[in-house]
Design a protein around this nucleic acid. Sequence first.
DNA 1: GATCGCATCGTACGTCGTACGAGTCAACCT
DNA 2: AGGTTGACTCGTACGACGTACGATGCGATC
Lengths: 231, 231
Amino acid sequence: MTAKRSGARSKRPQRTGISPPMPEAPSEPSLSRQRIVAAAVELLDAKGIEELTMRRLADRLGSGVMSLYWHVDNKDDVFDLALDSVLEYRGAPQMVQSQDWRGEVAHMLEDWRASMLRHPWSASLLPRRALGPNILSRLELLSRTLSRAGVADADLNAAIWSLWNYVMGATITRASFGLSDEDRAAAQQRVARLGEHYPTIERSRLLLDDDWDGAFRKGLDFLLDGLAPRQ
Amino acid sequence: MTAKRSGARSKRPQRTGISPPMPEAPSEPSLSRQRIVAAAVELLDAKGIEELTMRRLADRLGSGVMSLYWHVDNKDDVFDLALDSVLEYRGAPQMVQSQDWRGEVAHMLEDWRASMLRHPWSASLLPRRALGPNILSRLELLSRTLSRAGVADADLNAAIWSLWNYVMGATITRASFGLSDEDRAAAQQRVARLGEHYPTIERSRLLLDDDWDGAFRKGLDFLLDGLAPRQ
DNA sequence: GATCGCATCGTACGTCGTACGAGTCAACCT
DNA sequence: AGGTTGACTCGTACGACGTACGATGCGATC
């Protein structure tokens, strides 16, 4: 099975989005959905996707494995929650209706990219998981900003998807094989070894280029120019 | 372990890229690397990533499980091979040095996208796997075409990555949650249920929009305009 | 007939996700 | 006080997975 995408959540109450005040003690020894997610993120950051198992997760939390299942449905649920938790956007929620829509969009998208690169596993997880609330929030913000910027309703969806696609691709590519210098060097070396087949790649040292941020920004500008001409 | 990315291949000879004439009989009952890969692709197409197991693969080939390991290193190897096999490009290899670089690039990128959408699992696999020869070939072709089109060497890498990123993102997004109409409808309904949080998404019916191809082409044009102005 | 490489495969091990049901403990009722 | 209920924890067990290891069969070569 690819995954249970929706359906009944765990047996527990479950937050609908943002938790209420909740004035609990700073030290919370007992299990909770949030503690589980936090531990999962730590584990993923430290070891990567393959190393996250329910047993290890329970170990790290000092609990029995099956106790986790009171708070989450299954392992896929953990992935969904970890992914969404990492993609939260705290970006000047209503910082005045600034006129600088372009800056606002660029800021949100760059923050998005940065968030995912801070947790490289998220990039390879995103294509397989459902859209969580934080992802939807970003899409909503993007829609609203572009709309305010004067993008016609008829073009709005194409505009959103173009930007989203670009960011996704840039991030996933970067996260998946731009991870370590050695990886890139190894790939470029493989190209060199295969010699005559890839002369242009070899000449431009494509796989070694590391001005990812510059390239990202440049392409983003091209897109924004196309979507709505500079004021 | 994330994966063994390189290192020793299987014990068998192994093709370096394209197989020599190889005039074998049309019916080949015995195991072979190519037969394994073909069966893997079939299985992936039919059932998806999670359903591909070495045992099922062996079943489908009418062989014992461990026999597979004579021809491939491990399961990750199967993924790598299946992925690359699906991304081969038979695109008018040297169809004259056409002046229409823009059309050539667009054709290759759209073919790429089409190939991946024909095998949706490839989109979610790509971010986690190494660059196979067919992927490198496409990158090489892209480099060469853009170079011929007059893109300055200094801008070449940024140009390539912008295009690659865009295609990757568009394809992955489309393949991962644009898969079935029901999926999209379910997502859009979830948005509606969460009501007030995502008014703009709801209004534009973003998740239901299905002019993916048009949106893809539009964004691609913007990028190409930016990279090298229309002649 | 002996030797040797290629190729196939059965068995077995350790690990995984999780179903099931028994256990603990505080809050509440009567 | 004793009984009930619900929230929560967890040990055991099962079936499936990837694959290490070594045995086996087989055609070609000496």
